[in-house]
Design a protein around this nucleic acid. Structure first.
Length: 458
RNA sequence: CGGAGCGUAGCGCAGUCCGGUUAGCGCGCAUGGUUCGGGACCAUGAGGCCGGAGGUUCAAAUCCUCUCGCUCCGACCA
């Protein structure tokens, strides 16, 4: 891709509407454009990041036996009436009528749809356990969208649903999925994401965990023990952590309650080491039980010819929120620093003063060589000043950068630097044979990808 | 849904209190020229129904009423 043809202008000034870093950088870098409150279009760089995250998720979901399926965005309300959620869920569920006057809903989560899909298809215990997942658009009519891709009304989500014949089997799979989630976040560039105990809310069920990126811009408050590995969302912790005397009531400001919990005794280890931190929820896993299978009449025949309700688990990841979280965690003042695994392009090729024949010839040759070798490369072929070129490259945040200029041509070299500034070397340039240069670039890509490669293949 | 603020060129803003030629500035964009390793400079130029509707007035970006939208704080939230 040549940058001269890439849509999405990059600019210097922070838009007034952007309150948090990832939002500002993604608007300034030409990644996203707001369409309405909580409704966002993506330009190519953001779409490419999303696709790479999705590929990692698919890989890990397939590895734990998932089957990718596709459920509808628009559903007849009748389905939601079956589960009872048409009435129990509030205005977050967008309802409307079709031309025939039938009640319809926009999918905000897909338990109903997935039970509908599988309930006739798994009549015997021998079909179990199984897991289906999809990566698809959700719409939630949130009362207040905010912070760019962090909290939106329409978003892309991976949601997975597993079905089991015993609680033990569900718990075993839940644990497997927990591990898969750890691998997904690590591969996407957030190895520091942690899981915390959470409340199951409207989903129902007992055991639930949320995966959090601890970060000040996060909307959730997390209670963490500094002494042991106890971690919990405050929503779930309020009942089990004993508040020190004189704390405010739970009805009052949540931040004040969190503050008050600091230094309380940990319910797990007993030490007075509780701390409160903010976090961005990037994924969650629930043990649902039989809430939906019972409500919607999904049954199978067990070994002894008895009808049973399968036990369900569900597992979600917000793809766009994950992308924004990586940006939030990996950036400098110039722009995002995308990990190789999800970067929009692997290599950013800059041709400084490309009207010089030596430069344009060398750059074109390198560009062609990289393309031929299958490297994802964005080529800045514009006649702009070095400052503009570097600033734009910083905003696009590609992990590796090649710089060709009259200076580098003079010394028969190309500059090879990394976005995170850990690499800065000259690669020898021989226009007659650029294979060595291309393979040096490839080696660096492989090196930077190592952390994200699957540990195990199916 | 409560509270606060804002809608003027692609972006950032001034002008609105106190109505009065042709609505400005910076960035960006286009053309030409000079530059060239961290958002260069000069010249010329394009781009606006001042969010929308109604009203007051000789005259409205500016005053009044209604409306739509956006942002922030809170409530809410798999």
């Amino acid at each position: 891709m040549k940058i001269s043809q890439l849509l999405g202008l990059r600019f210097k000034e922070t838009p007034a509407d952007c309150q948090i870093t990832s939002h500002a950088l993604m608007v300034r870098g030409g990644y996203i454009k707001n369409v309405g409150s909580g409704i966002i279009s993506l330009y190519a760089p953001a779409k490419r990041i999303m696709q790479k995250i999705e590929a990692i998720i698919r890989d890990e979901m397939n590895r734990i036996g998932g089957q990718e399926v596709m459920l509808p965005v628009v559903m007849p309300a009748a389905l939601w009436k079956e589960s009872g959620r048409f009435d129990s869920v509030g205005s977050e569920l967008l309802r409307f009528k079709d031309r025939g006057g039938n009640d319809m809903v926009l999918g905000m989560t897909h338990e109903e749809a997935v039970v509908h899909l599988v309930r006739g298809a798994a009549p015997s215990y021998s079909h179990y356990p199984f897991m289906v997942y999809q990566i698809q658009t959700k719409f939630r009519d949130e009362p207040r969208a905010r912070a760019g891709l962090i909290r939106v009304r329409e978003f892309t989500m991976k949601d997975a649903y597993s079905f089991h014949t015993s609680q033990e089997d569900l718990e075993e799979y839940y644990e497997e999925c927990h591990k898969a989630y750890e691998r997904i976040f690590a591969r996407a560039g957030l190895p520091e994401a942690v899981s915390v105990k959470s409340d199951s809310g409207m989903m129902g069920g007992k055991v639930a965990h949320e995966f959090m990126l601890l970060n000040d811009v996060g909307e959730d408050t997390i209670i963490i023990c500094a002494s042991c590995d106890f971690r919990s969302n405050m929503e779930a912790a309020e009942n089990i952590v004993e508040k020190p005397a004189g704390s405010p009531d739970e009805a009052s400001d949540r931040h004040a309650v969190a503050k008050a919990l600091e230094g309380a005794a940990c319910p797990a280890c007993g030490k007075k080491a509780i701390t409160a931190k903010n976090g961005i929820e990037i994924g969650n896993i629930f043990q649902l039980g039989t809430k939906y299978s019972e409500a919607m009449g999904m049954q199978y025949t067990d070994k002894d010819d008895n009808l049973q309700y399968p036990i369900m688990g569900c597992y979600g990841i917000g793809v766009g929120r994950l992308a924004a979280s990586v940006c939030e965690a990996r950036h400098d003042k110039f722009g995002p620093i995308w990990p190789m695994s999800i970067a929009p392009w692997q290599v950013h090729l800059c041709a400084l003063m490309s009207d010089t024949p030596e430069v344009s010839e060398a750059a074109a040759k390198i560009y062609g060589g990289l393309l031929k070798a299958g490297v994802e490369v964005i080529f800045d072929d514009r006649a702009v000043s070095a400052g503009v070129m570097f600033s734009d490259a910083d905003l696009l945040g590609c992990p590796l950068r090649l710089i060709v200029s009259p200076k580098t041509c003079q010394r028969n070299a190309v500059e090879f630097v990394s976005r995170d500034k850990t690499l800065k070397i000259d690669l020898p340039l021989d226009l007659g044979n650029i294979d060595g240069l291309i393979s040096a670039v490839n080696q660096q890509i492989v090196k930077q990808m190592e952390f994200s490669l699957p540990v195990l293949r199916l």
